[in-house]
Simulated scan of single mutants.
Amino acid sequence: MTHCGTVAIVGRPNVGKSTLMNHLIGQKLSITSRKAQTTRHQVMGIWTEGDMQVVFVDTPGIHIGGKRALNRYLNKAASNALQDVDLVVWLLERDRFTGEDAFVEKQIRESGKPLIIALNKVDQVHDKAKLMPVAQKMQMRFPDAEVVPLSALKGHNQDTLMALVGKRIPEGPFMFDPDQLTDKSLRFLVAEIVREKLVRQCGDELPYRTTVEIEKFDEQPDRVYINAVIFVERKSQKPILIGHQGSRLKQIGTDARMDAAELIGLPVHLELWVKVRDRWSDDEAALAQLGYKDP
C-alpha cells in the first residue's frame, strides 16, 4: 500500500520556508533571497521514495501591514494552503517570535490541521541548551504538535523532520509520477529565476514593484530561446533596473541564463526587456493577467 499526502510549509516572511523545501526535495524549485516576500506563489515540491510520496507546498510569507492587492494575494495563497493539506510545518526563527508569527499562529489554530513546529537557524546557536526553553514553550502552546530544531540552510536535523512527516502521511495513491519534482512548468520556473536574480541585484524597495512575464519560450533540440519582460510600476524605476549602460540588466540576464540552462539541461538564449505597467501590484485585473490568479 502506498502513502501520499500534502504538507504546507508556512510562516512569516523571510523565515526560510523556500530554503527548507528546496533542501527537503533536493532540488532548487523555489527562489530564495534575504528579502521578505520573495515567494509569491504556492509552489509544490514532490518527494517520492519507495511507497511514500510527500507533496510539500511552499507558501508566501503570511504578513501584516501590506495594503496592496499583491499583499492580499500573498496572504490568501498562504491561507488557502492551510485548508487543503494533511499536515502543516510551521517554520519559526528559533528564539524570535514576532507579531507576524502570532498572526500565523492564529491561522494555524483556525485550520485545525496536524502540526509540526520547526525552529529554524539553530546552526547559529552555539549553546544548544538555550533552545530547550523555546521548544518547551512552543510544546506547551501546542501540546499535540511535534517540535523540531533544525537548519533549513545547513540541512541540520532535516532527517528528523522527514521522519516525523512520514508518520503523518495517510495511505493513498500517488498524486504525481514518482519522477516528477514539481507541479510548475519550466516557463514558470524560468520567470522565477529571473525574478530571483533581480531581487538579489536591486535595493530594498524596487523588487517589490517588479514582476516577470515570459513572452517567448521556444524549445529547440539544441537550445532554448526565451524572451522575458520585467515590469516596473513607474518610469523612474526603469533606469534603476537597467543600470549604467545596461550593466545591471545584463548581469541579471547572465545570472538567470546560467541557472535556467542548468535547470533545463540545454543552452539558453535569454533576452530581457523592462517595461512600465502603472500600479500593477495594486490592480486585481493586472495581477490576474500577470499570473497572480486566485489560488
Score class of each variant (00 low, 15 high):
residue 233 E to H: 01
residue 7 V to M: 06
residue 156 H to L: 14
residue 201 Q to D: 09
residue 224 V to I: 15
residue 184 K to I: 00
residue 203 G to F: 06
residue 103 F to I: 00
residue 73 Y to I: 00
residue 8 A to Q: 06
residue 105 E to I: 01
residue 134 V to F: 06
residue 294 D to I: 06
residue 273 W to S: 11
residue 128 K to F: 11
residue 116 I to Y: 09
residue 28 K to D: 06
residue 271 E to K: 13
residue 19 T to Y: 03
residue 68 R to Y: 00
residue 158 Q to S: 02
residue 68 R to K: 13
residue 101 D to K: 01
residue 203 G to K: 03
residue 157 N to D: 13
residue 117 I to A: 02
residue 13 P to M: 04
residue 183 D to R: 04
residue 26 G to P: 09
residue 173 P to E: 09
residue 229 V to Q: 04
residue 32 T to Y: 01
residue 166 G to K: 10
residue 56 F to W: 01
residue 230 I to R: 01
residue 239 P to H: 11
residue 206 L to Y: 09
residue 282 D to M: 04
residue 211 T to F: 06
residue 238 K to A: 10
residue 92 L to Q: 10
residue 2 T to H: 07
residue 134 V to E: 12
residue 217 F to T: 12
residue 209 R to D: 08
residue 95 D to L: 10
residue 169 I to Y: 05
residue 247 S to Q: 15
residue 175 M to C: 11
residue 279 R to A: 14
residue 215 E to L: 10
residue 107 Q to I: 01
residue 80 N to W: 04
residue 55 V to C: 12
residue 255 D to C: 07
residue 95 D to P: 04
residue 251 Q to S: 13
residue 250 K to D: 14
residue 31 I to C: 02
residue 124 Q to K: 15
residue 194 V to E: 08
residue 37 Q to C: 06
residue 200 R to P: 02
residue 271 E to T: 14
residue 72 R to Q: 11
residue 249 L to E: 07
residue 31 I to V: 12
residue 239 P to S: 09
residue 253 G to W: 08
residue 100 E to T: 00
residue 86 D to G: 08
residue 72 R to K: 14
residue 290 L to Q: 06
residue 47 W to D: 13
residue 185 S to T: 15
residue 265 G to Y: 10
residue 224 V to S: 10
residue 19 T to K: 01
residue 149 P to S: 05
residue 49 E to Q: 15
residue 115 L to E: 07
residue 9 I to L: 14
residue 126 H to N: 14
residue 68 R to P: 00
